[in-house]
Design a protein around this nucleic acid. Structure first.
Length: 480
RNA sequence: UCCUCCUUAGCUCAGUUGGUUAGAGCAUCUGACUGUUAAUCAGAGGGUCGUCUGUUCAAAUCAGACAGGGGGAGCCA
């Protein structure tokens, strides 16, 4: 009966003593032939299991190696040593799974994140990744809680999609046709998808937004939270080929409502993690602090992780228009001294990473919501402002991460929308179903997309997006 | 995809102007110790120097190509 076991988190947090308990978990270290640091993933802390000399079989002791899985039964007692309040004095230890210490790659020492990424199937058993993925779990749970409390409907949008006109990025093809060159072709040499599984060309989704808008035109408030795929050849610490995206879509909402929602949302999620994952976050904060010490003084972050998260929860995001941002950048000493690689000369340019970082990290020193971008650099579905030049778009920029949210009020006016699609060469016939929302009972609405992994990066203080998703997919890599 | 740096033991790294048998710490193994906190102490084993090609009497060291990784950029979330 495995359910009789006590989870280490519960055992440690109760601080109750003098009762018998059964624990199971994986050995982190075995010191002095006597002290087992046992972890079962329920918490970052290990339980000290004491194997008293003479009480246990020598042959069993030999098999208690780093990585081995064991079951221990014994009395929970106040710890005789320092460093923990309670410990388990084992009366019996059973090896559930041996681990050959000569071959097990994790050692009781510091490993580089790059090395651990190569053994992503085992890195869950480290302090850092244990903390990261417990925080990730909490954030995911908090997202559902936030929207559920506000009456949003969780909409499952398709993962296989027929539309390839969204312009969000390169897509992965989905097909059952043979790849050996024998697939049927049209007269012009292109592949004929008539006999493909779906009878047409299909791809993995790059965004659930358009489908989300359809549902918002019935349920008022919806959100999606699911995997998203981009076949872009992006080799950065901020991009994945497979990532999870949250996309709320709200009827009867304008850009300001949208900004309010996004800001409330981010603060709620972070506050939830601060409340429920204190221990893990403090561990990650300490890890980050040690890493920062390696850097030269001028490159270090001004705030520690906990301080940063508290700050974000308790302060308003700075809201500035694109036009104001350009003025700030143009007039900045940084620009005048030509310290930007791309100098800011005038209105209409797309902001470079260095410009966004300057605004967030140097000028405002807090999250920034940039609004009303030139229409030329934004997507077709964004609502055109009365000035004829800008659209009701908003991007939220976070310190250290850059763009974390991209959203807009949507263009609900059919004539304006189709006109813009024409200008941007987006085939209207393929998106006829989408245009139906504008034909039958259109209303002002808005929404945004938030990259889940970027949020996890921000909250955990990790710096590479490949370290906050269990099994990352990126160019030239799809292991596990 | 572009720029740049890196690749030496299981891990993290040294390795002199190219020169004989390539080193350290940690891990592992053997033994000791038995209230330890990444335990400690003693000893041992462990390497096709990323791959290929070239230069040279001689290459871990120099050059080129390729592969993988880091940092930055673009695309974006």
């Amino acid at each position: 009966m495995f359910n009789k076991r006590t989870k280490i988190k519960a055992l440690l947090s109760s601080e109750q003593t003098d009762y018998e308990a059964t624990v199971m978990g994986w050995v982190r270290t075995f010191r002095n032939n006597q002290f087992i640091a046992l972890n079962d993933g329920s918490t970052n802390s290990n339980l000290q299991v004491v194997a008293t000399l003479g009480d246990l079989d020598e042959a069993i002791l030999k098999r208690i190696t780093t990585g081995a899985c064991i079951k221990a039964v014994g009395q929970v007692i106040p710890s005789l040593g320092k460093g923990q309040k309670v410990e388990l004095k084992a009366s019996s230890i059973e090896i559930l799974g041996d681990s050959d210490a000569e071959k097990f790659p994790l050692q009781p020492k510091k490993h580089s994140l790059e090395f651990l990424r190569e053994i992503a199937h085992l890195r869950f058993r480290t302090n850092t990744f244990g903390a990261v993925f417990r925080v990730r779990h909490s954030l995911a749970f908090a997202i559902h809680e936030f929207f559920n409390k506000r009456g949003f409907l969780y909409l499952h949008t398709p993962i296989i999609t027929a539309s390839d006109a969204e312009g969000a990025g390169e897509m992965f093809k989905v097909t059952t046709l043979p790849l050996d060159g024998t697939a049927p072709k049209n007269d012009n040499g292109s592949i004929n998808f008539k006999d493909d599984f779906f009878g047409r060309s299909t791809n993995l989704t790059v965004s659930g937004q358009l489908e989300g808008e359809l549902a918002a035109m019935a349920f008022s408030d919806i959100y999606t939270f699911g995997p998203t795929f981009r076949a872009e050849n992006s080799n950065t610490a901020r991009h994945l080929a497979e990532f999870w995206m949250i996309e709320p879509e709200v009827a009867f909402a304008d850009l300001e409502d949208n900004m309010d929602l996004a800001e409330d949302f981010i603060k709620y999620i972070i506050a939830y993690a601060l409340e429920h994952n204190r221990e893990d976050l403090e561990f990650l904060a300490q890890r980050l602090e040690e890493e920062e010490k390696q850097k030269p003084q001028n490159e270090r972050a001004e705030m520690g992780l906990m301080e940063k998260l508290d700050f974000v929860v308790n302060n308003n995001f700075e809201r500035v228009t694109y036009t104001e941002a350009i003025e700030i950048l143009k007039e900045s000493n940084h620009n005048k001294k030509k310290k930007f690689q791309y100098l800011v000369e005038g209105w209409g340019i797309d902001l470079q990473s260095e410009h966004e970082r300057y605004l967030v990290e140097k000028h405002f020193k807090k999250p920034v919501i940039l609004t009303n971008y030139p229409k030329e650099i934004k997507a077709f579905y964004m609502r055109q402002n009365d000035d004829g030049k800008t659209v009701a778009a908003m991007d939220i920029l976070a310190p250290g991460i850059g763009e974390i949210v991209g959203g807009s009020q949507r263009e609900e006016r059919l004539d304006k929308l189709t006109q813009r699609m024409e200008e941007m060469h987006i085939p209207a016939e393929e998106l006829d179903w989408y245009l139906d929302t504008r034909r039958f009972g259109a209303c002002p609405h808005a929404g945004f997309g938030l990259g889940f992994e970027r949020l996890v990066l921000f909250v955990t203080g990790m710096t590479n997006i490949r370290d906050v998703i269990p099994f990352p997919r990126f160019p030239k890599s799809a292991s596990f």
